[in-house]
């Protein structure tokens, strides 16, 4: 279980997050949504152990700030918003860097196949397109937490805007991959900009606004006209997709 209680984060003496309490269960996919600058990524970085925080946050019962990096790495993988590679590694060499919890080259190649880059192993990462590079990093994270449930407990996948650099087909592929990880017993927490993708794939949606948790629950409860207008300051009409029974948001170009 991922549990945050009264979480507070200050950067450069400015309070970015205030009093956020959140509970995520293994086997579920939680989308963190909210306008730009609301504190989504800050929340994710506190939960991955990158930022100091006040209050409490625990992963599988262990306080995150007190857990040494190697133990955290055994329990969770993190896909950052972007990764700048300093040296000319090949695709396979980068994915192999993820093999910190056991596994061999076969697993690295399986992870590459998962993200649709099976034929790219020998290429230099710097020669690939932005979307392909993003998927190489995802494959590296997958190789790290290959089994969604380890003998020590469920593993967690943290994603910071995982679909930002991808076309719509790849967006769906990555979200399906995250969904499968959760369905197999792992926990997924993803910062998302796309509300409709969040509604389609997430079990729970956490809406952040001004450093506070505005709403948290099932997509249909959180993505309402009232919440969205408060958070995004613009008119959105919430429809329902007949086949999925999840909210579908349509921006209203003309007021009224």
């Amino acid at each position: 279980m991922l549990l945050a209680e009264n979480l507070t984060v200050s950067l450069a003496r400015r309070e970015i997050l205030r009093g956020v309490s959140l509970c995520c269960l293994p086997g579920t996919l939680t989308a963190i949504v909210g306008p730009n600058g609301s504190g989504k990524t800050t929340l994710l970085r506190a939960l991955t152990g990158d930022l100091p925080y006040g209050g409490s946050a625990s992963l599988n019962g262990h306080e995150i700030r007190d857990t040494p990096a190697p133990q955290l790495a055994a329990r969770r993988g993190v896909l950052a918003q972007s990764t700048q590679l300093a040296f000319p590694f090949t695709v396979l060499e980068v994915v192999r860097l993820g093999l910190v919890n056991g596994g061999d080259e076969t697993r690295a190649r399986q992870a590459l196949a998962e993200v649709g880059l099976a034929g790219f192993a020998g290429q230099l990462v710097q020669d690939l397109s932005g979307g392909e590079q993003a998927r190489v990093q995802l494959a590296r994270v997958l190789a790290q937490i290959w089994e969604p449930v380890s003998p020590a407990g469920p593993r967690w996948l943290f994603l910071d805007e995982p679909v930002a650099a991808l076309d719509i087909g790849q967006q769906l592929a990555v979200m399906r991959l995250a969904r499968r990880f959760a369905d197999a017993g792992g926990g997924v927490v993803a910062v998302m900009h796309d509300l409709n993708l969040s509604a389609m794939f997430a079990d729970r949606v956490a809406l952040i606004h001004g450093g506070r948790l505005l709403a948290h629950g099932r997509a249909a409860e959180v993505l309402t006209d009232r919440h969205l207008e408060t958070a995004y300051c613009c008119a959105l009409r919430v429809n329902t997709v007949p086949m999925g029974n999840c909210p579908w948001l349509v921006p209203q170009a003309v007021a009224g």
Binding site: T48, G49, D50, P68, A69, P70, Q71, L72, A73, A74, R76, G77, V78, A80, T83, L97, G98, V100, Q144
Partner: peptide, 9 residues
């Protein structure tokens, strides 16, 4: 950050 995510101190 990525190195730390991979367990490097």
């Amino acid at each position: 950050a990525q190195a730390s995510h991979l367990g490097v101190e």
